[in-house]
Nucleic acid binder design. Structure first.
Lengths: 253, 253
DNA sequence: TAGTGGTCTAGACCACTGA
DNA sequence: CAGTGGTCTAGACCACTAG
């Protein structure tokens, strides 16, 4: 006889825990509410703290929880929609773009970037740092690589450095006619500097959006933007994007 | 005197480990090559296995490594670009679309989906399962929700169920005029069924692409596609997307 | 059956936050 | 300062794969 092996796959504890916690989050907690600490939770569920943490990590990855060292674990609000695909035919730095220039430097790009720019590894590029804030919270950090040849009329006198310099570079960029752009999204982990700017720990999961701006038949600028994966839902297209939420989440009073 | 506190931040071991391994991957390993097993690696670096694993997990998240239980850890090839934004004005199931229908069911949608469809929670919808293969490897699993009202002329005789039924539903859908679509991308973790189809463990990181198809002034269909985050780079736009790779990766002989 | 990665434990100490 | 999450250890056993 065929031994039916009913449920021969023992579900891992952390997976089951995650399910239980997820349901509790929907039914018994409000956004912003603080969960019991990890040691208490682990004891309550009769598992080691490491196991409990494995479940919490997954829930944080899914944007359901927010954990902060020294503070505690709180129920996260639904992810915010962040528009990425709008201004389909606008340069970075165009009016009403969501980014804020931080500073600017002229340096040789990383080898990988030089390749994508199809420029010599030694040719210096302007590296503009920008940051993006949404709902009062930093959501993304960007590095914009602009070959010097893309902004030939830029004068050194325009501004020596800093945010003013960055704006000058972007202003010069507007003079080119944008012929198109293409974009890629992939998963990454935050470098130390990005993590700091995003108010996360190094290694935090981020969505890396790479955009290539085409003008005069070549790549005139390259943007590498890292978005917080835990709090952001990237939206493309005109109207703002779909929202699929998890269940009945109430708002904290 | 101001105690300068040079390097007062002790870099976590796993972070340093990750950096070392990442450089070794660039310089000393070829794509497809098998790394030493975790116990040996941990011993070699003088850390506990759990710490070593923390580093490996990050590298896998970044698409640098691929680990398979019972087999070992191998150097992953660069992520493959997967076009998502093409056929900007085409219905799912249009000719030459990258998806393959698997089956189809008529059922009440999850509450969250019903909300997004702006349809009653009780109104049944066609749920089409599709899968997407690229370079001989499964890269995405999709659930397509199509309200029965979007395909009014569908006859029960067309096909009872299965892939043929799915194709019949999609064929009916083509009759509507597509007025637009909007799309969102966010990080998620694979449900058990998706994980199986993607040949990954449950909980594996995925990029969830939610697309809403608009016709007749309402949402005529909703697609929720989950892409393997470790192997895929989602590309939007016309030309195929930018590739930023990590360093000199050689090909295994 | 041997060897791999996946899960789990019960501790310890550290870095950070806020009162 | 007490309490939080973050890191780390040294084990153990399990599930899976392939020879």
């Amino acid at each position: 006889m065929g031994t039916t092996q009913l449920e021969s796959v023992p579900e891992p504890k952390y997976w089951h825990l995650k399910t239980v916690l997820s349901e509790a989050l929907d039914s018994e907690f409000s956004v912003g509410e603080i969960l019991p600490n990890e040691r208490d939770l682990a004891a309550r569920f009769g598992v080691a703290r490491a196991t409990l943490r494995q479940a919490l990590e997954q829930l944080e990855l899914e944007g359901r929880l927010q954990r902060r060292r020294g503070v505690g674990t709180t129920v996260a609000p639904p992810r915010m929609g962040v528009a990425v695909g709008t201004d389909q035919d606008a340069w970075p730095g165009a009016p009403d773009d969501a980014w804020q220039s931080v500073d600017c430097a002229l340096a040789a790009p990383p080898a990988a970037v030089a390749t994508a720019l199809e420029t010599g590894a030694d040719e210096p590029v302007h590296i503009v740092r920008r940051s993006r804030v949404s709902h009062g919270q930093p959501v993304a950090a960007e590095l914009l690589y602009i070959p010097a040849s893309s902004v030939p009329d830029l004068t050194a006198i325009d501004a020596p450095s800093g945010a003013a310099r960055a704006r000058a570079v972007l202003r010069e960029l507007q003079r080119l006619e944008l012929e198109g752009q293409d974009r890629a999204v992939e998963l990454g982990s935050a470098r130390a500097d990005d993590a700091k700017e995003l108010d996360r720990l190094p290694g935090a999961p981020v969505l890396v959006v790479t955009t290539r701006f085409l003008a005069e038949g070549r790549t005139a600028a390259l943007s590498v933007a890292t978005y917080r994966a835990d709090t952001c839902r990237l939206t493309f297209g005109d109207t703002g994007g779909v929202e699929i939420h998890h269940g009945p989440e109430r708002q904290a009073s």
